[in-house]
Design a protein around this nucleic acid. Structure first.
Lengths: 249, 249
DNA sequence: TCGTCATGACGAACAATGTTCTACTCAACG
DNA sequence: CGTTGAGTAGAACATTGTTCGTCATGACGA
């Protein structure tokens, strides 16, 4: 039974009562174990390494264990299961988000900045946003980012209930956007699937649709396939944020 | 090699050249095969049955085969792989969406109606929205719904490029919303996981956060956890749609 | 009417996954 | 020097998607 990693998970989701990690003073109590013991941090590092290099689909317990030079069972002394590993990943990602001090005059730009960071993190680790969508919303680092976003919204004059709902919608959209974008890029890599289409092919395909059943798609094929990812992202975020304006004026 | 189901998949994604399904006139050419042969339609039916009853996670090839009273390998004469099955599912779901004739005066309500249908379909089959997020956007039925949405937006006076981007954002949000909602309900069912929280517990947990690091989350715990699913859905959809207004006026 | 053949169904099997069981190592402590 | 106990690791199990070779079965031509 040993230390039971479930306790550790619970600690990551509960309020930080005392010391979050309780790292030794580097040389005092634990004078450097000879063989680089497996820790939750090292597991998370290895997992992110795998995801960055090969995508979230390649993230298996065995793959992570191989990176650490061990077998799959060795990880289960530190993590509860694969869901727990996902949780660690999105926690680590959210931990990297830097939150600005809320500025009532610039709440909109600040939110674009924060969610832009999240988007970039998601895209740097292709497919993790799937884990983010499935994640339990009580992870401590996720809560930290949520609190920061809430602070910005409230500083902007948005009433609390609206702010909460808007935050949910924004987070949902960003995760969904990153997931879709990752899938597109992944498909572009697997060119062995002959029915995968490039950008131009999509335009051609749209334009080749029967005019009787798909008049608009056909007519505006170019516009529909237009716009890089960031453009669409900024557009959607703008829609969501501008809708909040009335409450602030 | 036989008929190669890849051809069928390609047909489902290509333009409908001639007959979409080519169903026999019931008694003319094919006078009722004695043993109910396995067809793509029956596979899709069985798969949806499984998802409706046990959720998308329970959707395995073997499970579907069992519903049809056969072994897993029998399905591979009709589908390419599991991704193909996912594609069939979301195609069938989109086929059930009824599209209104575009009314320039009611484009907003019409869109709420269409995406409400999609949301209800997703929620009726818990978890399928995951497949929808990963789906290839060239599925014929998906294109049909997309065309319908586009028609409504254009009738509302939205310019084509904005309409296309807005459509993407809306579809993304609806799929993400349904996925999140399905996960919440699924978690609520698996009560054996002790760290899963009910609504009230979430409020308590928020209110119990340390006030120094989570002041806003703590203070507005009630508002943050407030609102049923439909409320939040309507709110987010409203944000996205109202942002389009200026272009229409 | 009989033989041939192609289509599709099926069982067994394979590789890969998450997870558990049990044995083992090895530093710390009496 | 012996004990202990946490952390490690290898083997194994159940379940997944997928493929291979074989078999039934209905259609078609002589």
């Amino acid at each position: 039974m040993s230390v039971d990693p479930r306790r550790h998970r619970a600690a990551r989701h509960a309020q930080p009562a005392a010391r979050p990690t309780a790292e030794p003073a580097a040389g005092a109590a634990a004078p450097a174990p000879r063989k680089r013991p497996i820790t939750v941090e090292r597991i998370t590092d290895a997992a992110l390494e795998v995801v960055a290099a090969e995508g979230y689909d390649a993230l298996t317990i065995r793959r992570v264990a191989a990176v650490l030079g061990t077998g799959p069972s060795s990880l289960y002394a530190h993590i509860v299961n694969k869901d727990d590993l996902d949780d660690l990943l999105i926690g680590r990602l959210h931990a990297e988000v830097v939150l600005p001090a809320p500025d009532p005059a610039a709440w909109r730009e600040q939110l674009v900045g924060v969610y832009g960071q999240l988007r970039d993190l998601y895209l740097r680790y292709p497919g993790v946003s799937r884990a983010a969508l499935a994640a339990v919303p009580t992870n401590l680092e996720t809560l930290r980012v949520g609190e920061g976003v809430l602070a910005i919204l409230l500083a902007g004059g948005i009433d609390p209930r609206t702010a909460g709902w808007a935050r949910d919608a924004l987070s949902l959209y960003v995760a969904g956007y990153a997931l879709e974008q990752s899938l597109v890029r992944q498909r572009r890599r697997n060119e062995d699937q002959e029915w995968v289409l490039s950008h131009d092919e999509v335009v051609d395909r749209f334009a080749a649709l029967p005019a009787d059943r798909f008049p608009h798609t056909r007519r505006h094929a170019a516009e529909l396939a237009s716009g890089t990812g960031p453009d669409r992202f900024a557009f959607a975020l703008g829609l969501l944020l501008d809708g909040l304006r009335p409450a602030a004026d």
